[in-house]
Design a protein around this nucleic acid. Structure first.
Length: 208
DNA sequence: CCTGCGATTTGCT
DNA sequence: GCAAATCGCAGGC
């Protein structure tokens, strides 16, 4: 077990205005919010920002069948397959017409933990291995590739604000993980000191 | 049409 | 620590 569970009350579901901002602001402010799918989820502790005019972003190649959702309205899901095996869940940010995506990389599991265990038998004991990576999250929450383009405002995938009174997490930033392009940009956002990160963060000095 | 690669995870050397 | 697994997609021919 661990200090993971402890499901406090969920705050209000995030709506359009939250997502219709700059990608990096959305990435930072998603920390502390709770990602839920079909009764299973947890508190977001790690995100990364991907912006239109930066080569690591899928939208860098312009508008294609694959990237159209990134250029569309904010507050939708972008789910794609990586290495032919793993699904990656992103939140579409920025105004309609501007591409931006926030990759959700790690959660502190709080709800449906037994369900997560069934779906991730390799996670080992404890709750650290359940959602400590973008592929693990989609497995634990059973997020499907077909859910790309779904609205996060009224679809089955929901993000809830922290409940009133919860102190916002201290945020640290560093380089994004696993990139071959634009690996220098410090657009990874983590809750400081969280034991649920996909990997420890090399902190870069700088603001959000 | 065919080729090469990628925002990862896991298990083995 | 390293390499395999496995496939959608972008770009070249």
């Amino acid at each position: 077990m661990g200090q993971g569970a402890d499901p406090g009350p969920l705050g209000p579901r995030l709506r359009g205005e939250f997502f219709a901002r700059g990608t990096r602001v959305v990435a930072a402010e998603l920390l502390g919010c709770t990602l839920m799918h079909e009764g299973v989820g947890g508190v977001i502790v790690e995100t990364e920002a991907y912006e239109e005019h930066e080569p690591a972003c899928h939208a860098y190649v312009g508008r294609t069948a694959r990237t159209a959702v990134l250029f569309g309205p904010p507050g939708r899901a972008y789910v794609y397959v990586c290495y032919g095996i793993h699904r990656m869940f992103n939140v579409v940010a920025e105004a309609d017409g501007v591409a931006g995506a926030v990759l959700v990389r790690a959660l502190r599991p709080t709800r449906g933990i037994e369900e997560m265990r069934l779906r991730r038998p390799r996670a080992g004991t404890g709750d650290r291995g359940l959602c400590s990576g973008p592929g693990k999250i989609c497995e634990a929450l059973a997020i499907r590739r077909s859910q790309t383009d779904q609205s996060l405002e009224d679809g089955p995938i929901a993000i809830h604000a922290a409940s009133a009174g919860d102190r916002p997490p201290a945020v640290v930033t560093g380089p994004r993980i696993g990139l071959t392009k634009a690996a220098d940009l410090p657009w990874r956002y983590c809750e400081r000191g969280s034991p649920y990160l996909s990997r420890p963060i090399e902190v870069t000095e700088g603001a959000v």
